[in-house]
């Protein structure tokens, strides 16, 4: 009904964190902090992977809801909001399906980050990474 709203909300929060982190990293680089380019993927870049998955996925999911007539271009935008019974069902769906979607995407992202760090570390150990 509107399960994608949970992932949209997470995407907004992660995007804000990503921008803050990016600013911190730029400041640290300007301040002369030791560059760890070859053995370390910046956290802001990893957060960008997560926002891309969340925003991209939510967008395509939102299209599916438009397709099924659950999202409309006029207020209140969600057809389930027209009567209290449907609204209650929608909120329940957001709390279950939506939260599970956001959690699984985040879990996959954590796995990706661990794998990416391991690959970069291994490449740095064998001298494959360019400085």
């Amino acid at each position: 009904m509107a399960c994608f709203t949970a992932t949209v909300a997470e995407a907004v929060v992660v995007k804000v964190i990503e921008k803050v982190e990016e600013k911190k990293e730029i400041k640290a680089a300007e301040g002369g902090a030791k560059a760890e380019v070859s053995t370390h993927i910046p956290f802001s870049r990893k957060l960008k992977w997560l926002t891309s998955m969340l925003i991209g996925g939510s967008f395509l999911l939102a299209f599916e809801h438009v397709w099924h007539g659950e999202v409309v271009p006029w207020f209140p935008f969600l057809t389930a909001m027209n009567n209290p019974e449907d609204a209650a069902e929608m909120f329940s769906e957001i709390a279950t399906v939506g939260v599970c979607m956001a959690a699984l995407v985040t879990l996959v992202w954590v796995g990706m980050c661990i794998a990416a760090d391991a690959i970069v570390k291994r490449a740095a150990g064998s001298g494959e990474v360019e400085a």
Binding site: S52, M53, G56, G57, S58, L61, V97, M101, L104, V105
Partner: peptide, 21 residues
């Protein structure tokens, strides 16, 4: 192409959860 991959994988994971439910 990285963005396209993330978009498709993100949607796939979300629809997978939908399919499980």
């Amino acid at each position: 192409l990285g963005f396209l991959c993330f978009m498709f994988w993100g949607a796939s994971i979300m629809w997978l959860v939908d399919a499980v439910f």
